[in-house]
Design a protein around this nucleic acid. Structure first.
Length: 274
DNA sequence: CGGACAACCTGGTTGC
DNA sequence: TGCAACCAGGTTGTCC
């Protein structure tokens, strides 16, 4: 479900209400979602810790706690992290509840149970197999046309696969990769190393633009996504190709096509993405 | 290197 | 209505 704009929206949302609150108790309704340490240790370590601040790295949420701890959360497809009052009815598939000292709760729900949580230390983040190997943040100054050109150089892989590779760019997912390629006018199956300098620049700008607009719209809700208060996003109204098969391309009017690459549905316009 | 595919899961949609 | 097939914002590992 959540890509960079959705996680960023959740982080902003939770940052408004969680910092300063202390974790009093953790209820583990399904231990499967705790990746590490073992559930008993996870609860022991988390209890009594104060929430300091919340950050994002790629699609990971990082909740910094007192006691030199970081709660890392990856929502995968259907994970939700919602800060709520105790009276709110429990959503189906709620696997973890953090009881906070002001009586509110931070709940983790996940229909498909692909998402995972880790309790780490700030110093060990770089050793985490996922977080440690993340590539550049696409909205940071480090993401330049030159960086992108370097990442594309010598790679025969398809543009779509490269954009989804978290070791290259951290945070792009299926929706925003397709939308960026459409805005750049590039075919998703184009071998990465064949882009001209102008095309690299166009792709660089398109990636940043689509992510910024996604954040401004508070993310894309196709089905399950909701922010830290349970509210949907609005970027689904602005999508130009994603999930718009057979509908006219907003730029040239040709019907949007779909293909599968890397096991993922890929939407593109055969008219303006040659 | 790179691509296809299965696995991990539940549930909504589509088509016969 | 019933039921099977297909589909889903992600990641990881295996096989060729």
């Amino acid at each position: 479900m959540p890509e960079l704009p959705e996680v960023e929206t959740i982080v902003k949302c939770l940052s408004a209400s969680l910092p300063g609150l202390t974790i009093e108790k953790v209820e583990v309704r399904n231990p499967q979602v705790i990746a590490a340490p073992a559930p008993g240790e996870f609860c022991r370590q988390a209890c009594g810790q104060k929430i300091l601040h919340i950050r994002r790295r790629g699609k990971y949420l990082l909740i910094y706690l007192s006691g030199d701890l970081v709660l890392a959360v990856h929502l995968r497809m259907t994970g939700r992290l919602v800060h709520t009052g105790p009276q709110e009815p429990l959503a189906r598939h709620t696997h973890l509840i953090f009881f906070l000292h002001d009586g509110t709760q931070l709940r983790y729900a996940d229909t498909r149970r692909f998402g995972r949580l880790w309790l780490l230390t700030p110093g060990s983040l770089s050793n985490h197999p996922g977080i440690g190997s993340l590539g550049v943040e696409p909205l940071s100054p480090q993401f330049t046309p030159a960086y992108l050109a370097g990442a594309l150089a010598g790679r025969r892989t398809r543009l779509k696969s490269l954009l989804l590779d978290q070791r290259v760019i951290a945070g792009l997912g299926n929706i925003y990769a397709d939308e960026a390629l459409h805005r750049a006018g590039l075919h998703p199956l184009r071998p990465a190393c064949t882009l001209s300098g102008e095309e690299v620049k166009a792709l660089h700008s398109a990636v940043r633009e689509v992510l910024r607009e996604g954040i401004a719209a508070r993310g894309t809700t196709v089905r399950d996504y909701a922010d830290g208060r349970g509210q949907p996003g609005t970027f689904q109204e602005k999508l130009r190709v994603y999930r718009r098969r057979e509908q006219p391309c907003p730029r040239c009017g040709k019907p949007v096509s779909r293909l599968i690459t890397g096991g993922r549905s890929t939407y593109f316009c055969p008219g303006c993405q040659k």
